[in-house]
């Protein structure tokens, strides 16, 4: 019955994450910008798996593709793969301490980045700088922040 409670809040957090995704970081720091959209989607899929699932991941992935001017569908694919794994494991993951959760997030982000790398390679053999993998580490580091903020949003909005 409370299926649609807080739906706006979820969309709003994802839109905010998209803004952060294209925010102009000064100069050389741009390579550190983590994938905020994916982190937000992971949080919601772990917290309310019956509300945010693969469909949302795919849709917002597609929007991220358009937003960042990529090949249509590459983020859609990466996000839905990661969210699928999150949905499968969400019950176990909720029991984990934050450190272990962080490790899982690390592998999620790595998987997404790996898929993007493969897609890029299929388009044209790419010479990528090692800093391509930096967002995985900064993303893992910012997980506690994302978790705390979104948990606050979820509890204050009574999203279940």
């Amino acid at each position: 019955m409370n299926k649609y409670v807080g739906f706006g809040r979820i969309i709003l957090t994802i839109a905010l994450a998209m803004c952060l995704r294209i925010a102009p970081w000064p100069g050389a720091l741009a390579v550190f910008n983590p994938d905020w959209v994916l982190l937000t989607l992971i949080y919601w899929s772990l917290a309310v798996p019956e509300r945010v699932g693969i469909f949302h991941a795919w849709t917002f992935g597609l929007l991220t593709d358009v937003l960042t001017g990529r090949l249509l569908g590459q983020y859609a694919l990466a996000y839905s793969m990661v969210i699928y794994i999150c949905l499968k494991l969400h019950k176990r993951l909720r029991q984990f301490p934050l450190i272990q959760q962080g490790l899982f997030i690390f592998f999620c982000l790595l998987l997404s980045q790996l898929l993007l790398f493969l897609i890029k390679n299929i388009q044209h053999p790419a010479q990528l700088h090692a800093s391509f993998w930096l967002p995985v580490f900064t993303g893992t580091a910012s997980w506690p922040l994302v978790y705390t903020v979104l948990r606050f949003v979820r509890l204050s909005g009574r999203i279940k």
């Binding site: 998209m18 803004c19 294209i22 929007l63 358009v66 249509l72």
Partner: peptide, 24 residues
């Protein structure tokens, strides 16, 4: 494919303007 991108851009292009607001 380009028309799909154009359609979807109606949803996400406002975000670009939003991000630009602080600089302005």
């Amino acid at each position: 494919m380009d028309s799909l991108r154009t359609t979807l851009s109606f949803f996400v292009d406002p975000l670009k303007y939003l991000v630009d607001v602080p600089t302005v």
